[in-house]
Design a protein around this nucleic acid. Structure first.
Lengths: 238, 238
DNA sequence: AATGGCCTTAATGAAATCTTAATACAGGGG
DNA sequence: CCCCTGTATTAAGATTTCATTAAGGCCATT
């Protein structure tokens, strides 16, 4: 129950097996994903405590997955890759990865680096105490690490998509995000289902704007997209 | 915002120089220590933001330094060592190090891993948040990244076509743009609906020229087209 | 098998925007 | 002075885009 949950993203069956059995010996819980699309989905739905990511996936570049996850979470990402070029390492690390191991790697080293990351999210004594990297906008508060949202000091429940949507807007405060950009970031694939986006935006708004302070965090830019504005007391600041 | 202060613990003069000059190029501040004793002393007295640590010091084992520092701080420690054995890595990482690089290492990779640690201690606030390219013309300001327009410090709402039109003019300040050029740029296809263009130009002008400062940003060139002029205080500059 | 949460899809009315047309204005040449 | 060309402005209709609601399907848990 309070063991850390690790998402293993690796398309090579042998290596995946190697990693998962290693994790089992340490008592860690895990999920697996063989494609980038599955990785995105699992990371949202399962809310793992950290991700072990192979860069060489069949469908999308691993760096894209890192960027996607970083839109809504700071959970540790350890890259395990066959690419040993500096450029690859730097790109992955700057995209938001926390560590980078090149294949072939020692399972002992992987475990040690895993412990480093777990330490970072304060995994101690069987209890996960995530560090708090929070976004604050007037009465709205997002704790990225914990994956929680607070409004007027009260926690509100958001579904996975609503949460990602809110994080995406929050991480780009002041910027207008086009429909296609949002769709691409949230769903990963190239859907152009704008009506669906509208529905989610409506439910999200109902949850975060129907409160005592009648703040309007989300503006719609007709024909373009949406943007979150920084609210201060009553006026807007860039 | 202060530059991060980095403590470099390395007894080899050449490598120390390599690291410090690299740090200098990035604008980081640094202190150095050549022995374990000096490292402990410096880390306490200078309160660096992070430590780059060589394990092979003359007086004490690097792991002891890690343990010592971890008794009172969890500032990032990146180990740089000639030892490439798993055992050494695991011992250092489990002692509290955040990362482990084996010599010879790439300075680029070191910098990337350094950025990872800096990100962790929220030094991302130190770097410029958004250098979103903005266009400024007297009281008029366009933030292309945000997709917004301000006039006299107040945001004004433009419809998609108005916004595109304004951007087109702004990106060609001083130049006269013919009707056909504008029509082609905005509508894409080859419409020659000049009357429509006039309507949009009128509404755009009403929005950006009906303000306190009675600046005229847009000139009409009869029979040719329009152009935006750079306004400075009161006079016009090409 | 039933329940509940969540996502999707469709449909409605409302709002904003675009288009189009009509009218008014300014300047130049006859 | 009047007409003509090119432009500015305004208004009304047509179109697009949006918010909101509700219904159906999927998946997981019970």
């Amino acid at each position: 129950m309070n063991k850390p949950l690790i998402l293993v993203v690796e398309d090579d069956r042998a290596i995946r097996k190697l990693i998962t059995t290693t994790l089992e010996t340490q008592g860690y819980l895990y999920h697996t994903a063989e494609t980038g699309a599955a990785a995105i989905f699992e990371s949202v739905s399962q809310k793992p405590d950290m991700i072990i990511l192979d860069l060489g996936l069949p469908d999308v570049d691993g760096v894209e997955i890192i960027k996607n996850v970083r839109q809504w979470s700071n959970l540790p990402i350890i890259v395990v890759s066959a690419r040993s070029e500096d450029r690859d390492k730097i790109d992955a690390l700057d995209a938001g990865a926390d560590d980078y191991l090149t294949k072939p790697f020692s399972v002992e080293e992987l475990l040690a680096r895993l412990r480093v990351s777990l330490r970072r999210i304060h995994y101690e004594n069987g209890k996960i105490l995530k560090d708090s990297n929070v976004f604050v906008n007037a009465a709205l508060k997002i704790d990225y690490a914990a994956g929680c949202v607070w409004l007027d000091g009260e926690e509100i429940h958001l579904t996975p998509i609503e949460y990602k949507l809110l994080c995406l807007l929050a991480k780009n405060v002041g910027k207008v995000l086009t429909h296609n950009f949002i769709l691409h970031e949230i769903w990963g694939s190239y859907t152009s289902d704008v009506p669906a986006l509208r529905v989610f935006m409506a439910t999200l708004r109902k949850k975060i704007e129907n409160n005592s302070s009648k703040s309007k965090y989300i503006q719609t830019h007709i024909g373009v997209g949406y943007r979150m504005v920084q609210v201060s007391e009553d006026g807007k600041i860039l």
